[in-house]
Every structure is written in structure tokens, then in C-alpha cells.
């Protein structure tokens, strides 16, 4: 449904995308995961026909993003990272505006947006600029959906949003996916990768890996140990000071430790930490998460 082949884009000398390729299948919920500066927005803007790539080709539903931009605009819905509805129109006026632009009406596609729109309908006469963050987000999503797009593209819809609203938002995306819409979504929150069918891990204009979240985690090449004591800060410093430790980073209440030698057992690390007089020690081998993988790939690419 989305095909990206060898796309590059630079802003003056800054390379925002470096030879990126990926494909998103019909009906898939695909995530672009990475920090600011990874190139997520640039890629989305190219796919949305709002920006022209320097090199490479991209297709949306079989249409070329440069040549067929008019066709693409009719069949995609886009929710940009910055709230871009008309602040001086009401909730209902915004929705009507977008419906009219696409030659449809709210009534015609109400089924599709119903679940989302009912939550803001009590405020339909309020100006969009006067809505809270969560409600703006729901209105923007409703407007992006009102012409019943085949492909929905969402640029960091959950950034700066609290954990509860984030969960609600992902539930909404799942429902839309079940109605057959192909979804491309970006997020800087690594824990949201697990909610996608497949993800591309991105960093500084490059794709570090593309796969299902489960397989990305399964293919983690290194041994990973978790350690915890009463004094987290001292623990991490002691871990980093030991020559047998390659990296040590805080993960929740544990430190995740990558030993230099993958053969190191938890018990050896525990002995070392005991010699440093750490209290209430817990040390065990653990399974990596997406963030561990991402951090591992980051250091690989740096070298």
C-alpha cells in the first residue's frame, strides 16, 4: 500500500533521510519509531505529497507521490504533528469544512468517526482553539478520517500526552485498522512499538531495522543482565567502572547490563556488586525490550 524506495532528502547540508526503503502492506499498522531528528516527519511529508524527495521513488496505493499527487491527496488522511485545524472555527465547522473540501458530508461517513466524534460532540459548538489537548487530538483525527481515506498517516499523535490518553488513542487506531484502513504512525515512545504490526526503528535519517516488534526483540544478539540494589546511582557508577561491563543503563528500577563477554553469568556480576557492598541485590538474566535493541543498534551505527 505504501512503497518507499531509496528515498533521500536533504535540507541544505543536513541530510534528513539517507537512502530509505520500506513497504507497508494493506491493512497494516506500521510504526516509525525514533527520536527527534530521525527523519520521521520528513518521510511522512514526502508521502503526503507536501515535500518532494531529492532522490528515490515512493508510491501510495500505487500512485507516484510526485506525479500523481492530486490522486493521492484524495485517498489519504493526515494528522500532522502540530495542531493544524482552524482555531477560530467550531468543532463542527472544522469537521464540515474538511468534509466539504473532499466533496462528502459528515452524515455520509459518520459511522467511521462515530466512536471518536461522540466524545467531542457535546462540545461541537466550541471553538477548536479552546479545546484541551486530548479533545484537539480527537477532532484532528475525526477531520483526517471524514473522507474515508484508504491510508491514514499520523505524525507523533501521542507526544506529550499522558499515559491514559495514549492508551485510549492506540485503542482508537486498532479499531480503525479493523475497519481496513492502512495506518502509518510515528512515535518517539519506544514502548508504543509493541502496539504496531511492524516497525521501522529510525535514527538520524537512517532505518536501523524493520520487523515485527516481537522479532526485533527475539533477534537481540547480546546477553542482557538486570541488576538492582538500594542505591541506583552508585550501582550504575560501579557497573560502568568495571572492565567486564560494556554498557549499563537504568531501565525502570533495574540497571540493564551488557557484559563485554556474553558468557558472563548473573552470579559473577552479583559477586562483583557484593564486593562493592550493595544491599538488597537482585541480579538475573533478562529479556531485552525495544529500547535495549534500539540502544544496541545506535552504538553499532555510531562505530
Amino acid at each position: 500500500m505504501i512503497k518507499v524506495k531509496n528515498i533521500s532528502k536533504a535540507y541544505n547540508k543536513a541530510e534528513a533521510l539517507k537512502n530509505i526503503s520500506l513497504e507497508v502492506k494493506k491493512g497494516e499498522l506500521f510504526g516509525l519509531i525514533g527520536p527527534d531528528g530521525a527523519g520521521k516527519t520528513t518521510l511522512m511529508r514526502i508521502l503526503m505529497t507536501l515535500l518532494i524527495q531529492d532522490e528515490g521513488k515512493a508510491e501510495m496505493s500505487g500512485f507516484d507521490v510526485v506525479r500523481d499527487y492530486k490522486k493521492i491527496r484524495r485517498l489519504v488522511g493526515y494528522m500532522p504533528g502540530r495542531f493544524s485545524l482552524y482555531q477560530d472555527l467550531t468543532v463542527e465547522e472544522n469537521l464540515e469544512f474538511f468534509a466539504t473540501v473532499f466533496g462528502t458530508s459528515i452524515a455520509e461517513n459518520y459511522e467511521l468517526i462515530k466512536d471518536i466524534y461522540v466524545q467531542i460532540e457535546p462540545f461541537k459548538n466550541r471553538l477548536a482553539g479552546k479545546l484541551s489537548g486530548g479533545m484537539k487530538q480527537k477532532l484532528a483525527l475525526s477531520c483526517a478520517l471524514i473522507h474515508k481515506p484508504e491510508i491514514l498517516v499520523l505524525d507523533e499523535p501521542t507526544t506529550g500526552v499522558d499515559a491514559v490518553s495514549r492508551k485510549e488513542f492506540w485503542d482508537m487506531l486498532k479499531k480503525l485498522q479493523n475497519q481496513g484502513i492502512t495506518i502509518l504512525v510515528s512515535t518517539p515512545y519506544m514502548d508504543e512499538a509493541g502496539l504496531c504490526d511492524r516497525v521501522a526503528l529510525m535514527q538520524k535519517g537512517e532505518i536501523l531495522r524493520i520487523d515485527s516488534p516481537a522479532r526485533i526483540v527475539e533477534n537481540y544478539p547480546r546477553k542482557l543482565l538486570a541488576a538492582r540494589s538500594e542505591e541506583m546511582y552508585r550501582l550504575i557508577n560501579d557497573l560502568r567502572a568495571w572492565k567486564k561491563v560494556e554498557t549499563a543503563y537504568a531501565f525502570g528500577q533495574f540497571a540493564h547490563v551488557t557484559p563485554v563477554d556474553d558468557a558472563m553469568e548473573a552470579v559473577e556480576l552479583e559477586h562483583y556488586l557484593m564486593s562493592k557492598k550493595h544491599q538488597k541485590l537482585q541480579v538475573f538474566e533478562t529479556n531485552p525490550g525495544i529500547e535495549d535493541v534500539f540502544m544496541g543498534l545506535m552504538s553499532e551505527y555510531r562505530e
Binding site: 518517539p188 529500547e291 545506535m298
Partner: peptide, 17 residues
């Protein structure tokens, strides 16, 4: 917000310190 996971942890090292 918005930084990679390694940078985010380096920031927390500052906080711990």
C-alpha cells in the same frame, strides 16, 4: 521529550548526580 533512549538516560545520570 523527544530524545533518543541513550541521551534520555544520560540526562537521568545528571539528575541522579
Amino acid at each position: 521529550g523527544g530524545v533518543d533512549p541513550i541521551t534520555r538516560r544520560q540526562f537521568w545520570d545528571f539528575i541522579y548526580e
